[in-house]
């Protein structure tokens, strides 16, 4: 019961946050620029075109009225028209959501698979050479510009060794769309060949995104394990002669993982944000590449819609992780 109350309280906090986000995007797009119509129309528009735009989007109305219209449009699922493709931006964004999520989730899994064991090993070898090496690698992973790492990986694996494609998501037809995740769709269709192909395309962008994320996870896991190692219950279990392995893999790992999970929302958010940059390097047709192309084409509506959309996704994902974490920890259950 308590869990339900907690979950509801979290959910109740979501609408105001989303409203706040909308207000921020509105401020950026309509209040900051001296003449929003001018910015939306782009540099080469004639004064007549600008005027037409101003009329069309109601940019001459009082701000409050503009905001209400903006809000109403969003509630109706209308994030505006892409000035470049002349299509509703929402369609583009929704169509690309799966690609970004496939990448971010794959990276999250990889990051956990690398980060948790390394964090545990690092803590168990505290202050010995292995710990030092892992900590140095972690530092580097956190300090690297992701797009640079992406280029290095491309240079080495794709261009020099030729074992992975340089960029793109698949060659030839993608699998029949079910989930929108090519790897999973291929598996559902029982199409091993397509799965292999999809995986080869997925691997480098995933690795790029996963490395800084793994570094973050290593840090939190290490701290969590060290904390658990010095806890009273581990002392008790040691004094009662439970096998070291049981203590570590059962008790310590679980408590370190709960701590790490707190950070996973943050990490996943960073992954989504990182994807924006990484997708451009690998031409991965997700939200990030869309944003990048919109920047190149000065497609103003598209960028604002992207900001709003990504922000909302981020808020929802964080909410879900929050709830999951509450479920996992018996103290809050």
């Amino acid at each position: 019961m308590r869990i339900l109350v907690l979950a509801l309280r979290r959910i109740a906090w979501m609408p105001p946050t989303l409203l706040g986000l909308i207000a921020i995007v509105f401020t950026i797009s309509r209040i900051i620029p001296a003449d929003p119509a001018r910015v939306i129309a782009g540099e080469n528009a004639s004064p007549a075109q600008v005027e037409a735009l101003r009329q069309k989007f109601g940019l001459d109305l009082p701000l409050m009225q503009q905001f209400m219209r903006y809000l109403r449009d969003i509630v109706n699922g209308d994030l505006g028209i892409s000035l470049y493709s002349q299509r509703p931006v929402v369609e583009d964004l929704l169509g690309r959501l799966a690609a970004t999520f496939e990448l971010a989730i794959a990276a999250m899994c990889l990051a956990i698979m690398i980060g948790v064991p390394l964090g545990v090993v690092s803590a168990l070898h505290r202050n010995r050479w292995l710990d030092q090496v892992i900590r140095l690698a972690t530092m580097a992973g956190l300090a690297m510009a992701a797009f640079w790492l992406a280029i290095l990986l491309q240079l080495f694996f794709s261009m020099t060794l030729g074992v992975t494609p340089v960029q793109g998501r698949i060659d030839g037809w993608g699998p029949d769309q079910i989930t929108g995740f090519y790897t999973i769709d291929a598996l559902i269709n029982g199409d091993g060949e397509t799965f292999g192909k999809a995986l080869r395309y997925l691997i480098l962008p995933t690795a790029t995104l996963a490395i800084p994320a793994a570094a973050t996870i290593v840090r939190f896991t290490r701290a969590g394990v060290l904390n658990a190692l010095s806890s009273n219950f581990v002392f008790y279990q040691t004094a009662m002669g439970l096998p070291r392995r049981t203590i570590i893999w059962k008790y310590i790992l679980r408590s370190a993982f709960i701590g790490t999970l707190t950070q996973i929302g943050l990490v996943f958010g960073n992954l989504l944000a990182g994807a924006v940059v990484i997708e451009t390097v690998f031409s991965w047709p997700g939200l990030g590449l869309f944003a990048y192309n919109s920047i190149l084409q000065s497609d103003y509506n598209a960028i604002m819609a992207f900001t709003l959309f990504t922000g909302s996704v981020f808020i929802v994902v964080n909410l879900l992780i929050d709830i999951a974490q509450t479920l996992l920890d018996p103290r809050t259950r």
């Binding site: 706040g20 921020i24 950026i28 900051i32 910015v39 989504l272 924006v276 960028i303 900001t307 922000g311």
Partner: peptide
């Protein structure tokens, strides 16, 4: 504090892209 929470709820780079593009 609520306002700053909302800012923190969105990836920084995404907001920065929007602002830099506007300006």
């Amino acid at each position: 504090m609520r306002v700053s929470d909302i800012f923190l709820a969105v990836p920084q780079i995404v907001l920065a892209i929007a602002i830099a593009q506007t300006l």
